[in-house]
């Protein structure tokens, strides 16, 4: 049983509107998600919560690195998972598993999980409430008012002379993410964010939907990568996704 939609085919039983979602409230849905996750664990033997807290087979407990609340360990560059969408996370785990997203730590872990495990653990993390943005250390060197201005301009206005849209055009105001395909950036580990942009520049992270992020990242200098990573790491994640 597939618990999360893969990128290209999504079972569409109905078309829930934003309005309906607002009426029920985010927490209601998140609670429902947990309830569903538990039901699923009984029926499919893939328990997202168990994988996260105790591991599965050769895969260690995710919480060792991603924290008990999915908050990550910013200093170490272990990303926060709470607040990310299930489809997005599952796509990342699939990419680690097939080696297209290159990372020495996560590749063997994802490979040790079955398809069903990857779906279940993604659903589990997607249903966790977002922790408030941790105060994360910056990416060193370039901090200061100038770098902050560079980060803020790229984030909110872009650099159109170079056909670079603002990050917000796709990641939403405050980098809080939009829809299933544009992940939350606010409050994420700065080291992690910088690492991802660098990976796209180097071609060690798959281009993702329409190759958009490869194009974006290749327009950023190394200094800009650090500035924008610091900018988003400091923004609050709350009230989002």
């Amino acid at each position: 049983m597939k618990t999360a939609r893969s990128h290209h085919s999504r079972p569409l039983t109905e078309n829930p509107t934003v309005a309906r979602e607002n009426r029920l409230g985010v927490r209601g849905w998140q609670a429902l998600g947990l309830a569903f996750g538990l039901t699923l664990s009984v029926s499919c033997h893939a328990d997202g919560a168990a994988i996260a807290t105790t591991g599965a087979g050769a895969a260690p407990a995710c919480q060792t690195c991603h924290g008990p609340a999915g908050e990550g360990i910013a200093q170490a560059g272990f990303p926060r998972l709470a607040g990310l969408g299930a489809a997005y996370m599952q796509r990342q785990l699939d990419a680690f598993a097939d080696g297209t997203r290159v990372n020495a730590v996560m590749m063997p872990i994802a490979q040790a999980l079955s398809d069903t495990d990857r779906a279940a653990v993604s659903a589990y993390y997607a249903a966790l409430p977002e922790p408030p943005g941790p105060t994360t250390p910056k990416t060193a060197s370039t901090s200061g008012p100038e770098a902050a201005a560079v980060g803020a301009t790229l984030a909110t206005r872009g650099r159109w002379a170079d056909t670079l849209p603002a990050c917000e055009n796709c990641h939403g105001p405050g980098g809080r993410g939009v829809g299933p395909d544009f992940p939350l950036l606010a409050g994420q580990s700065a080291a992690y964010l910088a690492g991802q942009l660098t990976a796209w520049k180097a071609g060690t992270r798959p281009p993702g939907p329409m190759g958009l992020m490869t194009v974006v990242a290749r327009k950023l200098s190394d200094d800009e990568v650090r500035a924008i990573a610091d900018y988003y790491a400091e923004l609050p994640a709350r009230g989002s996704r």
Binding site: S9, L12, T13, L32, F36, T39, G179, P180, R241
Partner: peptide, 24 residues
Amino acid sequence: LIAIAVALYAAGVFDGQVTQDREQ
């Protein structure tokens, strides 16, 4: 209700925002 949740879940409600099926 859980069944409904399953259906909604599959439809991507928990991912938030507008659900789409690009191949539909």
